[in-house]
Amino acid sequence: MQELNWGLPVIGYLFLAGVGAGAYTVSSSVLLRGGGGFGGDHFNIARFGALLAPIPMIAGTGMIIFELGTFQAAVAQGDIGLFFKWINLFLTINLSPMSIGSWVLALCILASVLYAYTFLAKESAPDDDKKGLRQGLAWVGVPLGIAVAIYTGVMLGIMPSRPFWNSPVLALLFLISSMSTGVAGILLLRAMFGKAHATATGESSSDGGKSADRATYLLASSDVLLIGFEVLAIILFIMFAKLNIGNPGYAVSIILPGGELATMFWFGVVVVGLLLPVLIELRYVVPTLLYQQPYAMPRSIEMVVCAVVLVGGFMLRYVVVLAGQMTGPMGI
């Protein structure tokens, strides 16, 4: 077993920042697509995403501080000065992915907090007085969220000394997984706290239920598509490494059958995180897609699907972060 320099705090951060960034991006794009679409239900989805986004991002950023050597020394020695040494990150900027990432993350958190603020009031509506600010922050949110989702993959991917990570596909994989877990986070919140049907708002009682379901259908079918892309990215990731000669092929064998992390990867990431949710979602999405049947996924199943997508997203970061550190270049 190799020394794990980056442990649970980093894994947790990669996952949580991904969920937050994904939620911000998805919320922004849903809002920009048409703030009040489907009888205001687009706006509701955007609101759930906006209120969710900053929480995991801030929590993840808080976690990652625990992994800093200076923070650990500060705890061990009771030296207050060392606690805040991470400020040094923001006294400079260079081409290190971590430096760029820190700035982008800080900006993204700031923007997402403001964005959440525009949705905070219960009576927020697509055309209220915060519309301008909200729209502006949504325009900012799409690129910022994508940047936060993608930089973690770049950060891990640029090091030839870590052949498992050293693949451009990793950034793509993290980006797609972030978007997918972001959608799952929004759907989960909606299933937990959303009104039973839009009919409850008393708008147009005849159409309200359908429109709410249409909006959920939009997210669920996007999730199917994202999971499809994620499967593709995983296939590409494995192929690029396995069909390569030397270090990448050697490193990727840790997640292939017989490898130390194979079970965790194939069961935790692929079966639980990808196949299970996509099969359940297809069961409900396909009849609507092909036969225009009304879309109605029971809430309990919706919650299960979202939960397993989130578990899968965490397992992906877990396996990737561990595998990268358990393998190294061959030879000396």
């Binding site: 992994e67 800093l68 050597g69 200076t70 990268g324 270049p329």
Partner: peptide, 19 residues
Amino acid sequence: ICIGCKYCMQACPYDVRFI
């Protein structure tokens, strides 16, 4: 200046760095 982020420890192919 160093904050102990351990990125250099990951990047070094010779594992010569430590906290």
